[in-house]
Write a protein that binds this DNA or RNA. Structure first.
Lengths: 212, 212
DNA sequence: CGCGGTGTTGACGCCGCTCAAAGTATGTGG
DNA sequence: CCACATACTTTGAGCGGCGTCAACACCGCG
């Protein structure tokens, strides 16, 4: 990394349910997640919640802040999180390397959001869960955090429900169906995918769809 | 279509159902819509379709192409469309002014996509339609294309269904309910909103949610 | 005048939601 | 190490919003 700038890198740490950013508050800096999972979400007036983005190790948290927006949604840690905030000069200008990382993160984020629009708009419960689990695995794998066919999966069924637009109860039942069909093994916060191709099939992806 | 020049603006024209861009094909340039509506979408293997973005007059079509991505989804004209493609040098570098417009468009697009994730994940049919119609009106208004409480609305019920993740039949029934409740007047491609506040309420937006 | 796209209506079925309760981890303090 | 609280997972019964299927009406257009 580079440490030769006025504002130097600083590491920070969050516990589960702790906020990395609150709505409409100017964040101190742009975070890169080094360890742990976080998400952003929105809550409707009557309490319904939808998670709109997941941040995994290596991800830049809200790269579009680099475009000068302030957070329109809160970001909260789902597990213990270690993060680094990208150094920036007083006027919010990032060093070239970080700038590049932001653009890359931005492009990936848009791609993933678009995929999720399709899933939330048109897919069944099994397809939604297959999409989610595949995406998690692929993202973990591309960060070197997978082990063979498995990886960590710290989300609760309630959090899965809030990502997939389902209820926790239905997530539970659907996961059981998928286990019975041999599509996934999921227990005690670990995910194993016996047959990647079968799960891709169950996710009803389009041929050129890349999740990582 | 048209032979494009390195650095000068060129205008082009599309008819309904004509493609502004196809999947995975490098587009000639980045378009700005001058008149008419277009959308991008994805079709699942079994034919289900989800529209993932709408482009209205003034919008830059796929600003994230400026990040160096090629289109992952087709873009098709919904009406007659006039567009201008932004001049760019051979290496894809945009003039500063266009660059600015792209970043602005990008930030707006992310914001809207996020809002739609919430709507598709968690909202009822009425709420979805209220969100859509409000967004359309606000976007048209901010471009000076509204007239009092009304604006053009060229979408078919089938297209509305593909945006909101519903079926055309249910869109039809839900619109009737909304008409009965005095939430909207919608006929022959024109939209009138008698009571903006009531429609906002029906859309179950969060207080700080801005749609334009 | 006929034809394809669109809007409308009805009957019926199912996927996923709601409500409720019991069972099982996880963690905390004594 | 146990007692207890809290969070999470699992299970059952019943229901409802939205989808499906199938007509029919309407309209612009060649």
């Amino acid at each position: 990394m580079l440490g030769q700038f006025a504002a130097s890198e600083t590491h920070c740490h969050f516990r589960p349910h702790q906020f990395l950013a609150r709505e409409d508050e100017q964040p101190d800096a742009i975070y890169r997640i080094d360890e742990g999972w976080a998400c952003r979400y929105r809550v409707l007036p009557d309490g319904r919640r939808q998670i709109t983005g997941l941040f995994l190790p290596g991800d830049i948290c809200e790269p579009h802040w680099a475009l000068g927006k302030r957070p329109s949604q809160p970001i909260v840690a789902l597990t213990n999180v270690r993060a680094t905030n990208l150094p920036s000069s007083p006027h919010g200008v990032l060093p070239a390397e970080s700038q590049q990382a932001c653009w890359k993160g931005l492009a990936d984020m848009i791609e993933r959001q678009t995929n999720w629009l399709v899933t939330l708009g048109r897919k069944t419960a099994i397809e939604r869960l297959a999409h989610l689990l595949l995406e998690l695995f692929e993202r973990m794998r591309s960060s070197g955090l997978s082990y063979g066919q498995q990886c960590a999966m710290p989300l609760t069924q309630m959090e899965i429900a809030d990502m997939t637009g389902l209820t926790p109860v239905h997530v539970n039942r659907t996961l059981q169906t998928m286990r019975q069909r041999g599509l996934v093994e999921l227990q005690s916060k670990w995910l194993r995918i016996p047959d990647l191709a079968a799960l891709r099939d169950a996710a009803a992806l389009t041929s050129n769809e890349v999740l990582a």
